[in-house]
Write a protein that binds this DNA or RNA. Structure first.
Lengths: 182, 182
DNA sequence: ATAAGTTGCAACACTCATGTTGCAAGTCCT
DNA sequence: AGGACTTGCAACATGAGTGTTGCAACTTAT
């Protein structure tokens, strides 16, 4: 049945994310075991290991783009947009951290989407700076790298799966003001 | 000759860092080629791939600990100490980024040193907070994670190998004040 | 009930990285 | 020149992961 095979595909993708995020060198056998299926079944759905990883990456990248686009706006105050985008991205990144980190070695399609998101991010920061939220002399290239790194850290928080909005609040505060006395 | 073999070992370790930092799954063949020696020579110096990686990790960890200990002081103002430690660590991290990132899956000896450095870092932040450099309500656990992440980002800056002191200045400024208008 | 489709299992071929060994050639020290 | 040592090279053994196939058992729709 068609819905069954789709469910199987999803199960495998999620298992692969779980396994590969812990150990990127894990075997197809381990992925299959985590998905609760036989290794041959994985190979029937995905022609090769590369195809599986590409599918994970494509899936996560779509969610990533949706997370950004659904929260990005030029009408709301930059601080609000920044918070919403951050929270949305964190929700995806928590579940698809491994797949999302594969920006370079991927399909041109995936690379294009990541580049688009990157541009969106730069635009958001430019607006934030023009609106006086960021310092006028802020290095926006460095800011983006720090922002990405903070998202990575927040998403890999080990203690008990915090709420994305709380994580985003702390993250944005750190990005804007750091830890120093004001 | 003894000094020759030591030089060979160093050459291999440095080549391994170069190759594995770009591609952690690279083969011993690639490492050997990068070092300008035959694969058998690598195996004569390091019994196994694991032994090679462990040796890299041990070497980098020693440099790491030295970098921290030689700069850490309880007499200078916390801001000065923070800057000096950061610059010193960056110098090591730029050259040994891969080896230094292997904290968990390593020798107990290495894990111990990393834990000690971590404690030093926590102590440094506590002092900085007590001295009024950091906010009184700063989450020091989160601060350390952000600090480590910033060091990683600064060390992997692609454009032309900036000076460690300049990188440290920008890093510490970001850590303390972020990118927001003050 | 039957036909279509999916799965697990066992078996297989293949590739590639790892690790080992013997030997000839080279270097360095005395 | 002779002895100790290191290296490159070629060859080999081994193991693990990958990808494929045939078949019996099972599920589901018609």
């Amino acid at each position: 049945m068609r819905s069954d095979t789709e469910r199987t595909v999803r199960t495998i993708l999620e298992a692969a994310e779980r396994v590969l995020s812990r150990n990127p060198a894990a075997s197809m056998e381990q992925v299959a075991e985590a998905a609760g299926v036989a290794r041959t079944t994985v190979h029937r759905r995905f022609a090769s290991r590369e195809a599986l990883v590409d599918a994970m990456t494509a899936w996560a990248t779509r969610r990533f783009a949706e997370a950004v686009e659904s929260a990005y706006t030029t009408t709301a105050p930059p601080l609000v947009t920044l918070h919403q985008v951050t929270a949305n991205v964190l929700r995806v990144k928590i579940d698809w951290g491994y797949a999302m980190s594969r920006t370079a070695s991927a399909t041109p399609e995936v690379a294009r989407v990541h580049a688009e998101v990157r541009d969106r991010c730069d635009e958001m920061f430019r607006r934030a700076r023009d609106a006086g939220l960021l310092r006028a002399d802020a290095d926006l290239g460095w800011a983006r790298r720090v922002y990405y790194a903070l998202i990575h850290e927040a998403a890999t928080e080990q203690d008990g799966e915090q709420d994305a909005d709380i994580l985003a609040t702390r993250l944005v505060d750190t990005l804007l003001h750091g830890f120093g006395k004001r």
